[in-house]
Design a binder for these strands. Structure first.
Lengths: 225, 225
DNA sequence: TTTAAACTATGATTTTTGTCATGTTTTGAT
DNA sequence: ATCAAAACATGACAAAAATCATAGTTTAAA
């Protein structure tokens, strides 16, 4: 099993603010895990009692709404920490985490890392900065949800996925989401999501092959209102 | 001017985690300010360079969306800190803050408080917990925005205002929001907000007198879907 | 106290989005 | 390779919400 103090992934998250000694200790108690596409990492209401450091892959954070639909709130990617909120307060998880492709994660127990949060202000401040950034993102999503049309939000999601995950050798978005996932990010009915993607295809903004999507006209998508 | 170390308001926010010495120092450089209803405290894009501690009154945090409408993201109340995110990172404000009634606030310069954030882990951890809570709230708002009807959200807002601000001696909600404010919280057109309030009135869920609103049937509002 | 501006109210209409139904294609397990 | 289940696609219709128009009320400033 690889050692935290030598792991390059930590450069992308708050763990980089830990000292070498702290990392060695963390390394001794962490567990590594492979998660298959579609597998549930944790669910709303679970007690997580630790954080996951995502070494590879992507997962969705979602919440079941009263009407029985899942709403995807955030995509968590390689380098991110997952379940940070479990560290502060004793609440159970507010969101569910489900792998969108095969993942590799390390789990660090809360008991081990709490000590560092209380003693190492550099680490705590880094987490605070990360969370401040997440909060800003969430606030912006609220505004978009409230004020933009479904079509506009769909275009935004396509551009977001393109920016954050890039494309494969054939030019298709390298993360393949089901139409239902797109609907659950945008906050619309699956049929509406499909309909809008069909329309984008007709307009030459995207092309598709099965569930794979290729963006053909970034500027065009940006102009959607 | 009152002294931070003796101020009871700090019990409601992260400042309570500061030591007496730190509070005395903060007290020496803070400035107190009265803000009139409707006055802008700061706007999107402003460099705030400090935090406001709200001693009295309420303000709205909003963001102008592309279509020219304001979206209210959060109401900040007595006891809350305002502009916390300005402390982490050097970004300018993402939201505007406008007083909803007369307010009394203290302003603490960033330069003075950053030192504490770097040295006092208890303070930093408390801010982290606060921000984790805000993030959870925001995520829940995203889900509601995406999945609930405008009518449902309107009922939620009325119940929220009732829970958090209570009623005056005549039973009216003690915070008086314009119909437009309700629309901007819910994320709908002002006319739609008015229409729904009219409907609630017809159904006996609320009554109104001018812009004042009285909740007549809490359970009924809770049942709205 | 008057008076204009801002806010509230409501009708008519259009646009957007959701729902239901049904058929086709793709995918993955055997 | 086959086959059933899941996912995708699209039409028809219904519901929700936005927009435009217009009028009545309240509020606050002169």
């Amino acid at each position: 099993m690889s050692k935290c103090e030598q792991c390059i992934i930590k450069q992308f998250n708050s763990l980089k603010a830990l000292t070498r000694e702290e990392l060695v200790r963390i390394s001794g108690c962490k567990t590594s895990r492979i998660i298959k596409k579609g597998e549930v990492i944790f669910e709303e209401g679970d007690s997580i009692n630790g954080v996951f450091c995502v070494k590879d892959g992507v997962c969705k954070l979602s919440k079941l709404s009263a009407n029985g639909k899942d709403q995807i709130v955030k995509l968590v990617v390689k380098g991110d920490l997952l379940g940070q909120r479990s560290l502060v307060g004793d609440e159970s998880a507010n969101l569910s985490a489900i792998a969108l492709n095969d993942m590799e994660v390390c789990f660090i127990p809360k008991s081990e890392i709490m000590n560092d949060l209380q003693k190492n202000p550099k680490f705590t401040l880094d987490m605070l900065q990360q969370m401040a950034h997440d909060l800003k993102d969430s606030d912006n999503v609220i505004v978009d949800m409230a004020q933009k049309s479904v079509k506009n939000r769909m275009a935004d999601v396509l551009l977001y996925v393109n920016d954050h995950f890039g494309v494969d050798q054939n030019g298709f978005l390298s993360i393949t989401l089901a139409r239902e996932d797109y609907a659950n990010i945008v906050g619309t009915a699956t049929e509406s999501a499909i309909r809008i993607l069909s329309q984008f295809k007709k307009e030459g903004l995207i092309s598709t092959k099965g569930k794979q999507i290729k963006i053909e006209d970034i500027d065009g998508l940006n102009r959607i209102e």
